[in-house]
C-alpha cells in the first residue's frame, strides 16, 4: 500500500524515474523520493518506539562512519545516556527523534540523513555542493537538482580530487546564501556531472520549508 502511494505520485508527476513497487527486494535509499514533500504527522506516522540499545549502538557507528563527525560532537547532539525514539512512518521511512525533536532519518536501510535543522547547526557533517541562484526556487518547490544548476557559473562542485560518487548524501548550499537549502542524494558522480551537464544530478530529499521542516516537535 505504501509503495502504491509512492508510485502514484511518481506517475502523476510524469517523471521518468520509476518507483519500484517492490522495495523489499530492492532496498534503495531514495526509491520513494521527495519523501517529505507531502508528509502529515497525523496520517503518516505509524508509531513511536524507543530503540534498543544494541541497535542504537549500530546507528551510532553507522553515523560516525558515514558523516564527517567525531565522537565528541555526536555526543553533543545525541548523548550516550539518552535513548532516541524511532518514529516509524509510511514507506519504510524512519525518523529518529531525541526528546521529540527529529534528529535524523532513514529510508528503508539506506544512509542516515540529518534533518535540515540539525544540519544547520552542524554544517560540516555532509559534503556540500552549491547551486546557482536560479535553481533555488525550484529546489524550494521540491524539485530535484539538475546538472546545469550545479555546473553553471553560480554553482559549485568539489574539484576532481575530492569527487563525490553517486549515492553520497550531500547538502545543497545556494549561491550567495549562508545556510544550506536542502539535503539530497547524488544520482551522478560529480565528475560525471561536469561531462553530462543535463538531467537529474542530485535527488532532493529534504529542503527548507518542506513538511519535515515544519515538524519541530514530534
Amino acid at each position: 500500500m505504501a509503495d502504491a502511494s509512492c508510485s502514484r505520485e511518481t506517475k502523476s508527476r510524469g517523471r521518468a524515474i520509476e518507483a519500484d513497487r517492490d522495495t523489499h527486494t530492492q532496498p534503495s535509499s531514495s526509491r520513494c523520493f521527495r519523501m517529505f514533500k507531502k508528509f502529515q504527522p497525523s496520517a503518516d506516522i505509524a508509531g513511536q518506539t524507543t530503540v534498543k540499545s544494541s541497535i542504537q549502538r549500530g546507528i551510532r557507528s553507522a553515523i560516525l562512519s558515514s558523516w564527517k563527525i567525531d565522537v565528541e560532537t555526536l555526543e553533543e547532539i545525541w548523548p550516550k545516556k539518552e535513548s532516541i525514539v524511532h518514529v516509524k512512518c509510511r514507506d519504510h521511512l524512519s525518523i529518529y527523534a531525541l526528546h521529540g525533536e527529529p534528529l535524523f532519518f532513514q529510508h528503508f536501510d539506506g544512509p542516515y540523513f540529518p534533518t535540515l535543522r540539525l544540519f544547520h547547526k552542524y554544517p560540516f557533517i555532509l559534503p556540500h555542493v552549491r547551486v546557482d541562484r536560479g535553481a533555488i526556487r525550484f529546489l524550494l518547490a521540491g524539485a530535484h537538482m539538475m546538472c546545469p544548476g550545479l555546473t553553471s557559473a553560480g554553482g559549485w562542485l568539489p574539484p576532481a580530487d575530492a569527487a563525490l560518487p553517486a549515492g553520497t548524501p550531500v547538502a545543497f548550499d545556494a549561491e550567495g546564501k549562508e545556510f544550506a537549502v536542502g539535503i539530497g542524494i547524488m544520482k551522478l558522480g560529480t565528475e560525471e556531472m561536469k561531462v553530462v551537464k543535463k538531467g537529474v544530478a542530485v535527488e532532493s530529499i529534504t529542503y527548507v520549508g518542506d513538511d519535515l521542516w515544519a515538524i519541530q516537535k514530534l
Partner: peptide, 15 residues
Amino acid sequence: TPSQPEKQAIPPVQM
C-alpha cells in the same frame, strides 16, 4: 578538531 590535543565537541552554529 583533529589537531587539538584534547578532543572537544564542535559547538553548534547558532541558528
